[in-house]
Design a protein around this nucleic acid. Structure first.
Lengths: 165, 165
DNA sequence: TTGAAACTGAATTTCATTTTCAATATCCGC
DNA sequence: GCGGATATTGAAAATGAAATTCAGTTTCAA
């Protein structure tokens, strides 16, 4: 899936990688889990992207660094990253779980093109206010929300009008 | 999954059932499909609820009227109902597709309890305005959006504090 | 160093969804 | 009302993503 971004160069500095690794290691220690080379490799691969990665896509990236790392480990490590706040799951409605960086990132939402799968991020504090307000009104202790907009991007509309169905 | 509503009495009048059936029948004719007793039965069962039904749940309701109707037919009919605007899919992100009435219903959103699965509906025109605004800003032709709030409802919080983990 | 505990990854299982296919029902023109 | 072409039905099988299992491997605290 495409996203309108230049994703080839690492999006994050060496120090940030170290810091993220520390967060992961502390989390592992806290919950009595172990630090492994695989988990570090997977974290580094993850940090080097800015896409919304599926387990499968991240697995492919990880394999470039270490072909012996299996899909299952990537799958489990993504859950770990989500647990310690380094990643967060983002569900577009195509039935595939995706993850994105959460580290040092202000809350945002996505608008997804249903033709090409591309997406743009946008920021909208009103949505969080709405979450709080609705929670108060119905006595829910809210934890999170999802908000996605679906549509067709400009490029796809141009393609469609050039070659209509 | 529970919803805080009295759902035993039909939520929709006889005339509305007829009207919905007409909509379905017209749709079938339009796309060259056939009117069948099963489809009518499934539509009626669907209209008699106000829950957010999974295919499986609707299948169970349908079987009370006609035990010979299979899961597959319910599944396919729900897609048909969605096609002709009588139902719409609503994803609570628990891996199960749900459908709700769309007929004569103003746009609304859901807040879902992650403990008991219960939900409340709320109305918030700001969200649609936001959809339009963000669409304009990034030159997307928007078609729809999803917005859900997740949290823990009052009842589940009481239960939790009575019997803490 | 050592051993208990956790990890790994291939394979398997799970589970909702989707497709297949042979038997059946619908409905269009007569 | 009567074919018969065409769609429908529902059981069963297939699919595909997610989750779990298990035997062998690695980590790390003492």
């Amino acid at each position: 899936m495409l996203q309108k971004r230049i994703d080839d160069q690492p999006s994050i500095s060496r120090e940030m990688v170290r810091e993220a690794q520390d967060i992961l290691h502390r989390h592992l220690k806290r919950v009595g889990l172990k630090q492994t080379a695989q988990r570090d490799t997977i974290l580094r691969s993850f940090l080097e992207t800015r896409d919304h990665l599926s387990t499968d896509e991240l697995h492919r990236l990880v394999q470039k660094k270490d072909p012996s790392i299996g899909y299952t480990t990537v799958y489990r490590t993504l859950k770990l990253l989500a647990e310690c706040g380094l990643a967060s799951e983002v569900a577009f409605h195509d039935g595939i779980a995706r993850y994105e960086h959460q580290y040092n990132r202000r809350s945002h939402h996505h608008m997804v093109c249903t033709e090409c799968g591309g997406s743009v991020e946008f920021f909208s504090p009103e949505v969080s206010e709405l979450e709080a307000e609705i929670g108060r009104r119905y006595h829910y202790e809210t934890t999170r929300h999802t908000f996605q907009i679906y549509g067709v991007c400009e490029d796809c509309r141009k393609k469609n009008s050039a070659r209509p169905a």
